[in-house]
Design a protein around this nucleic acid. Structure first.
Length: 298
DNA sequence: ATCCAGGATGTAT
DNA sequence: ATACATCATGGA
């Protein structure tokens, strides 16, 4: 495999572990085989690996979140791929500076300095968050791993086998019962039907991407198993709608405790209010920091 | 055992 | 538009 280094001095703050273990992306596997940990139980320099666009990609961080480096191994030049997937092109300092100051946001940003949003491939992201309904983060990882290893294309490089996330056509070939056997539960028919929709071209990314934010969220609910919350996750973690604020259980409790005036009853109205409170344009960044902060403290 | 997890859907109102 | 029951499954 090719190898390379990305100097973080050219990128700005970056923290690989919190970026990949904060419940945004489920396409990466930690190479030490350990399940994802929400605390820093190790040095933070583990390898993470995935298959994207048919290319094997491994990456680890060395030297700390500010002035360290990303070391990669790949079947291709991974620099543009990593820049896209890990949003290394975001000006994180500017994003943080543009975020309104308040106690919870300050705490969250301080706790995971360098965490970035991800830019996941569309279909894997869509399936991951359909599976996320009423499911703990650690179990979502397991479900996506099972999908990869059961239906994805294996890629063997230097004696090691990696699994690509299955395409829509590959998932569509599975039956609902097949998917239930992987532990998807009542989400199995959602995943199967959405895969059929995408594979047949009935609804695709193109029907969502590029629309104004709220119209895009509405359009994304055309996928089976996708309501407003999952739609927001896909918009934020795949399509780059950084203003999207998924209203999950953690954020709803944060609203109740810290921003009770933002609870406007309906999803759409509450979403507008908290989005405004989190600074609008990059509100999704704030949401993800708050989510990870609340979910990992004590 | 009971409760809960990055909710969505079908149905009744 | 909003309210409610129902939907699997594993871990605490």
């Amino acid at each position: 495999m090719e190898t390379g280094v990305i100097e973080l001095a050219d990128v700005g703050p970056f923290d690989l572990q919190s970026t990949l273990e904060s419940g945004q992306s489920y396409i990466w596997r930690r190479a030490d085989g350990r399940t994802y940990e929400t605390r820093r139980a190790y040095g933070g320099d583990a390898w993470y690996e995935t298959v994207v666009d048919g290319e094997v990609l491994r990456v680890r961080q060395a030297g700390g979140p500010g002035d360290g480096r990303l070391e990669w191994e790949s079947t291709t030049d991974a620099t543009p791929l990593l820049t896209r997937l890990l949003r290394l092109d975001d000006d994180l300092e500017a994003i943080v500076d543009a975020t309104p100051a308040n106690q919870l946001l300050d705490e969250a940003y301080a706790a995971f300095r360098g965490m970035r949003l991800v830019r996941d491939p569309f279909f894997p992201c869509l399936v991951s968050f359909i599976c996320s309904a009423q499911m703990r983060v650690e179990r979502i990882y397991r479900m996506q791993t099972a999908l990869r290893e059961t239906y994805g294309d294996p890629v063997t490089v230097e004696g090691r086998t990696y699994y690509a996330f299955p395409t829509a056509a590959q998932v569509a070939r599975a039956t609902e019962a097949d998917l239930r056997a992987l532990g998807l539960g009542y989400r199995a028919p959602y995943v199967q039907q959405t895969a059929e929709l995408v594979a047949a071209g009935g609804v695709t990314r193109a029907d969502v991407d590029g629309l104004p934010y709220e119209a895009a969220r509405e359009a994304a609910t055309a996928f089976v198993g996708v309501g407003e919350k999952v739609a927001d996750c896909v918009l934020l973690f795949s399509l780059g709608y950084l203003e999207a604020v998924p209203l999950d259980t953690w954020i709803r409790s944060a609203i109740a405790e810290h921003y009770p005036d933002c609870d406007r009853g309906s999803y759409a109205d509450t979403s507008r209010a908290i989005r405004e409170r989190f600074g609008g344009e990059y509100a999704g960044y704030a949401q993800t920091y708050v989510f990870h902060h609340l979910r990992t403290r004590s």
